[in-house]
Design a binder for these strands. Sequence first.
DNA 1: CCAGACGTTGTT
DNA 2: GTCTGG
DNA 3: CCAGACGTTGTT
DNA 4: GTCTGG
Length: 235
Amino acid sequence: MCGRFAQLIELEELVDSGLISDLSLTNINEVNKYLSEKQIRPTQPCVVFTTESSSKEASASIARFGAKVKLGGNSSPKLLINARAETALDKPLFHKSLMTRRCIVPVSGYYEWSELHGGKRVPYLIHPQGNQIAKLAGILLRDAVSGGEGVLVITTDASQSVSHIHHRQPLHLSQQETRMWLSRETSTKDISNMLIRSDQVKLHPTQIASSYLGDREVSLAEASTSEYTEQLRLF
DNA sequence: CCAGACGTTGTT
DNA sequence: GTCTGG
DNA sequence: CCAGACGTTGTT
DNA sequence: GTCTGG
């Protein structure tokens, strides 16, 4: 679950989201060109927000979705894209990242496939109300193969509004929680509470045409974002 | 104590 | 490094 | 997550 | 069926 998401984000929406208060303070211009992806799949670069130790303000940077980890010396590296909220703090592999390398993945929505119509997998975009940005809880992990930055999305039990599509969902944070998640002052206890709390900001599933995601890569220019924003405006 | 693992999802 | 299993 | 491949040798 | 690549 949460193996694919969209980052089709306007700068002003990013300001509205509360992730950045002052455009000039971030490397946002450099990052902006990444914020027009309809589909971000594992291994592809995406935009994340983190708070560097030297700074109080969160800033944008690029990380690849997922990180390859070496499990057991012999086996081949495995790509991980999610970490379970219920157990992440207990996992040696994730613990340090949860303590010091938390990040936010701002998304227009994420995709989920649900089995319908005689075994066919039907895609949904699961997104906040209106054109708001969803702030997904993530952790950064060093990729054991490339050495680059990878981001894993924290997953939790699906809340009622999307549980009919799928039984898991990304940990979706409110504005207040986002601040805590990104702060380097937040205690382990508070992190733990955020990971296991039951309520989440509501998300809405919108069924989308299979052709929208397509079996072949379609360039943004060809696809035109209007089709996409049309989908979103329905809600 | 040491040795060995260290991960998620969905599906069966 | 740190947890689990024996 | 889904889509797509799933193979080897020698020669160019 | 299962693995790899994006």
